[in-house]
């Protein structure tokens, strides 16, 4: 395969174009996919509550604890 200027131009005008378009569509779809809203909201809010310890592998929920 000859790596000429023409070869690169052809590649970028064919595959490159559709690759970029495809990725843009895929990312926009992912970012605005309605059913993912809950996950994103949870992620956005996740940093606001406490940050001072790693999660513990226990089934006890926070509200079940005697005190914070």
């Amino acid at each position: 395969m000859d790596m000429t200027h023409e070869w690169y131009v052809a590649l970028s005008k064919s595959f490159g174009l559709f690759w970029l378009l495809g990725l843009s569509v895929a990312i926009t779809a992912y970012a605005f996919w309605p059913s993912l809203g809950g996950r994103f909201d949870k992620a956005a809010n996740s940093i606001l509550d406490d940050e001072d310890g790693p999660a513990q592998p226990t089934s006890t929920k926070a509200e079940d604890k005697a005190c914070r």
């Binding site: 940050e51 001072d52 999660a55 513990q56 226990t58």
Partner: peptide, 19 residues
């Protein structure tokens, strides 16, 4: 010692990768 200084029980205890 912050009031919230305790290990979290994350609401989302669904490890994507087993810890």
């Amino acid at each position: 010692t912050p009031a919230i200084d305790y290990p979290t029980t994350s609401e989302a205890m669904e490890p994507a990768v087993p810890a």
